[in-house]
Design a protein around this nucleic acid. Structure first.
Length: 279
DNA sequence: CAGACCTCCTGAACGC
DNA sequence: TGCGTTCAGGAGGTCT
């Protein structure tokens, strides 16, 4: 389940093997993931074109050529696997990008595998930022200082009665804070996930912002192991490298006060927190 | 308009 | 052992 740090790692891995290379072909094994795949448009943008850059916006990976941008999301279970053959070897391989053979370089085939098909694949020949997937997204936390992020969150939270946990997971407010990072950051900041966003004081928001950034940055740093394993990646390992203090730890003792960790549901999502340490 | 809840999907982890 | 059930989660959609 790729979170933002893992997506960053996947992007780096793709850069290592495919940046600057020409796409020879793309073969689709499905006509849809979450939505219908615009196959003809994607072919127009990729086939016969050099990959000028990869970029990331929120948890989307963007593949840029002179013809436009292909926009992909890994959902929960998606992965780009680098292979030496075009033949799908894993179940749920939904498309394969073949890079043109080049002197002195290995043959490379990018296999997109996604068992649950929560992933997405789309494209645009114009501005990627105006694509519906990206148009209404909030800022990238990693491009902000903790103070800027805190001010942004504090302003947006004014008058909001949504729980702070749901608030920081809302991609329209800020991108890249998935369930794991929301739970962990709130624990470190000592803020209950049940608190209403509008009731969180600026000072608390600053601490929360610091921990969100710290957790994301730490995970990206440790995601390096995934880059190393990318050639035979089978789903990514980097994200398990961060030590989870509350996520998934229901009934286990709080690392700080030993009180059993509570699990609750918020808008259908599990939240874990310490009733004593988080207020 | 804001907020809660539903939906998509498969496989892992349970329970009987 | 082997079946059925539950649950996880990103993000858009729908309902209140």
């Amino acid at each position: 389940m790729p979170e933002l740090p893992e997506v960053e790692t996947v992007k780096s891995g793709l850069e290592q093997v495919a940046l600057g290379r020409e796409v020879a072909s793309i073969k689709f094994y499905r006509k849809d993931l979450r939505e219908k795949i615009p196959q003809a448009l994607i072919k127009r943008i990729l086939v016969g074109e050099k990959i000028l850059s990869f970029s990331r916006r929120s948890k989307y990976i963007l593949i840029n050529t002179s013809k436009g941008t292909v926009i992909s999301h890994l959902g929960m279970t998606g992965a780009f696997l680098t292979r030496r053959s075009s033949k799908p070897e894993k179940p749920h391989t939904h498309f394969v990008i073949t890079l043109k053979k080049a002197k002195g370089l290995d043959d490379v085939f990018l296999h997109y595998v996604d068992p649950r098909r929560f992933g997405r694949l789309s494209a645009t020949e114009t501005s990627a930022q105006e694509h519906p997937y990206l148009a209404s997204l909030g800022p990238e936390p990693l491009e902000l200082s903790s103070k800027k992020l805190a001010m942004h969150l504090f302003e947006k939270a004014k008058g909001r009665k949504v729980p702070i946990k749901n608030f920081i997971m809302d991609a329209k407010i800020v991108v890249g804070v998935g369930n794991i990072y929301a739970c962990e950051s709130l624990f470190k900041a000592g803020i209950s996930p049940l608190r209403l966003a509008g009731d969180v004081e600026y000072d608390e928001m600053l601490i929360l912002a610091k921990y969100i950034l710290q957790t994301l940055k730490k995970a990206i740093k440790q995601g390096g192991t995934t880059i190393k394993d990318f050639q035979n990646a089978d789903g990514g390992t980097g994200y398990f490298a961060i030590s989870l203090k509350v996520y998934g730890r229901q009934d286990l003792p709080c690392v700080s006060c030993k009180t059993p960790i509570s699990q609750i549901k918020q808008s259908g999502r599990s939240s874990w927190y310490c009733k004593i340490c988080q207020n």
